[in-house]
Design a protein around this nucleic acid. Structure first.
Lengths: 160, 160
DNA sequence: TAGAGCTTTCAGAGATTTGTAAATTCTCTG
DNA sequence: CAGAGAATTTACAAATCTCTGAAAGCTCTA
């Protein structure tokens, strides 16, 4: 089987997994298309053709992917079309955003604690929750940074 | 405002957040009801009443929450009804399951690499992805374990 | 082992989501 | 600054999802 076809299938497969994990299906497909494409970047029209979806759907997907830092718009000299490409370091920023969710969970636990007090079944449940998320919140960012450093060191000689 | 009411509102608020993060709405509501309740455990009927939903909906939600380790069925001596309660250490096991997702991401990257080869734009993109998820996969479990240990040490004298 | 008390399953109604096509807006260029 | 080419928004239609109510299925106990 040819390379393009294998990549296309890998892309759709991952998109399906991500969709089951809560990401919108079309958004996931656009993301994986940009991840597995052999081009550096793709235009909206490319994405329409590759995925057989309308330009409106592409627009919506892109609007969701850009704010979370997974893809970026790149200026394309000589073309009037927008080009999109998968961002370097996208995974690390995606994981960093998980941190916001961790913090939210911690805050939710605190809120419950304020209402219930420490000394109750509820209090003990929520205390564990709060402690866990506080710990994770504190550890995750340094962990990601340590990966960034390590990866940058390994690839000091190979910029994009 | 009374305690129950504050807890109820905190529960619904968190449920909403979780729902936006991809969890099924009713599943999230059942989970947070069990998290913020002042009882140790609740019956299906309790949940129906508290959340104004049918027993079928409770059954479905419970069926999703148990496998992921967030809640558990507890035998209730003297009652024929099933009782459900939020599991101790639920958050840690939830996070551990994230690890499966991380591993999946790493595998997806590898699959693409096999098709595209290292020396291509695609290869470089996928290599970063693979490296990131491999690193995270390796670090996350120890991190969770270190929390477990720390928390257990702090609460050696206060079992449930 | 018959039956009470719960839980689970199932079919269908209702609500929500999501994609398309077309209209609109935006942005370059000649 | 007019117009062409592209992106975005909107209204609507289609598909999907999810809950309810009712029936079926378990599992204890008397």
């Amino acid at each position: 089987m040819d390379t393009d076809q294998r990549l296309r299938e890998a892309a759709e497969k991952l998109a399906l997994t991500l969709a089951q994990g809560g990401m919108q299906k079309t958004t996931a497909r656009v993301m994986t298309a940009l991840l597995y494409t052999r081009q550096d970047a793709m235009t909206a029209a490319d994405l329409c053709a590759e995925l057989s979806i309308s330009s409106g759907a592409v627009s919506t997907a892109v609007k969701q992917l850009i704010p979370i830092g997974l893809i970026e718009r790149v200026p394309a000299p000589g073309s009037r079309r927008d080009h999109y490409r998968f961002r370097q370091g996208a995974w690390a920023s995606l994981m960093s955003q998980q941190n916001a969710m961790l913090a939210t969970m911690g805050a939710a636990a605190q809120e419950g604690l304020d209402a219930a007090g420490q000394d109750s079944v509820t209090g003990r449940r929520l205390h564990e929750m709060k402690d866990f998320y506080a710990y994770m919140t504190k550890q995750l960012i340094p962990l990601i940074d340590s990966w960034r450093q390590r990866y940058a060191a390994q690839h000091a000689d190979t910029p994009r």
